[in-house]
Amino acid sequence: MKKILLNRDFILFSIILIILIAVGFANPLFITPKSISDVLTDTSILIILALSQMIVILIRAIDLSVASNLALSGMLISLLSTVHPELPVYYFIALSCVIGTTLGVLNGISIAILKVPFIVTTLGTLSIYRGLIYFVSDGKQVYSNEFSEDFLALIHFKFLSLSFLFWLAVVVFIIIYVLLNHTRFGRNLYSLGGNPDAAKYIGVNENKYIIMAYSLSGFFAGLCGYLWVARYSVASTQIAIGFELTVISACVVGGISVMGGVGTVLGCVLGALLIGLIRNALPAVDISQFWQLAISGAIILLAIIINTKTEQRKEKTIMVEN
């Protein structure tokens, strides 16, 4: 029992519940099923990106370029859809993923083969990918009326009155869960992040794993590129700007250690949910814009502190009590 109470994921879950209840008291409208389902929809992209960022953080790296990657992929398919509105939507989705993956592979190659440190690489591609959006779009926006109906329809699909985005996030959660916990690839990511020197001895090819992790991060950024433009029905140079920081804080709140090798998939999702909840809840209880930022920062910090405090070392029993 004590073990469950001290479990990081459980604590995070409790914090989420407490916030939900507190906000519910202040504004009962916030905890209606409709409103909660809106929050979930709103957080889905964050969940997907946090999960893919987690893969990178597990191996002691970070992908700062995800938001730019998302925006560039989204812009490219939006531009294409204005020229070829007749193409089916899955075509655009696949293309967006391919573009995203390619951008991710470029990150991976720069880090693994060219040995440019990951911070430098992804900070660089953060600006480069963002800059390319200006280049391809001439700084113009693609507006909702320019997208084909087909392009936007999928996002409005609902099942059990929950949105497509939400269900997609659930699918991604399951995929990443299985990938990280039940495949050799996933387990080797943990070993590489936990002890890179030792991973060499057991034959984990570090470069291969770096490139794979960044490709996956790129793939999901690309996927979210489509999701983002379709959901907000607009593609501009500014979309998702700064979103990489939200994604990384979701991971950190979720207990994914930036030292590598530690973190659960469930924790990551809960971290994203907590952040999504705060962002939605604070406006709902009439807190001024300025305080919103400060409060959400404080809650994030608090979650992290509670999280690390519970990470206590268990001691071996030597003596049988007599």
Binding site: R187, Y190, N195, Y201, I202
Partner: peptide, 18 residues
Amino acid sequence: SVMFDELSVTENVFIGNH
């Protein structure tokens, strides 16, 4: 030590060879 502190005993035994 070629050990992975954060992973379980089982996993350390099978590491690289799951």
